[in-house]
Simulated assay, not measured.
Amino acid sequence: MKAGFPGSSQIGVLQWPERAVYFLCGLLRYSYQETTLLLGMSDANVDQLYKFAAKRKTY
């Protein structure tokens, strides 16, 4: 049995911007504002990348 974050096994299928946003927001529970500051992206971009990542991860 592997230990790790829930859902982290499929994170490798994501492109790096989606992966970074999903990791920070989805797994570490950073807010969008914290994520935008860390990655230098707009709120809208972070929101869009997170939604894309969550959708792509389910396939």
Results as ranks from 00 to 15, higher is better:
T35L: 02
P17K: 02
K51A: 09
S42C: 01
Q10K: 15
Q48M: 06
Y50L: 15
F23P: 00
T35H: 02
M41N: 00
G12I: 09
V21R: 03
V13H: 14
L24E: 04
A54I: 09
A44T: 08
Y30M: 11
N45G: 01
C25K: 12
C25M: 11
L24D: 04
L24N: 03
A53F: 05
W16P: 11
S31Y: 02
V21Q: 02
V46W: 02
K55F: 07
Y22F: 12
K51H: 11
V13Y: 11
L37E: 11
E34K: 07
F52H: 11
G12W: 09
Q10N: 14
R19K: 14
R29S: 12
Q33N: 08
L27V: 15
Y22Q: 02
A54W: 07
L28P: 02
V46H: 01
A54K: 15
E34R: 09
D43F: 11
Y30R: 09
W16D: 11
Y30H: 10
V13I: 15
Q33R: 09
Y32Q: 10
T36Y: 05
P17M: 05
F23I: 04
L27R: 13
Y50W: 09
W16K: 08
K55R: 14
G7T: 13
W16R: 07
S8C: 13
G26M: 10
Y30F: 15
E18H: 09
Q10G: 15
Y22H: 10
G40I: 05
A54G: 06
L39P: 01
S42W: 00
G26H: 06
L38S: 12
T36A: 13
P17Y: 04
A53T: 06
G7Y: 12
L27N: 10
G40V: 06
A20M: 08
Q48L: 08
Y30P: 02
L49A: 05
K55E: 10
A54F: 11
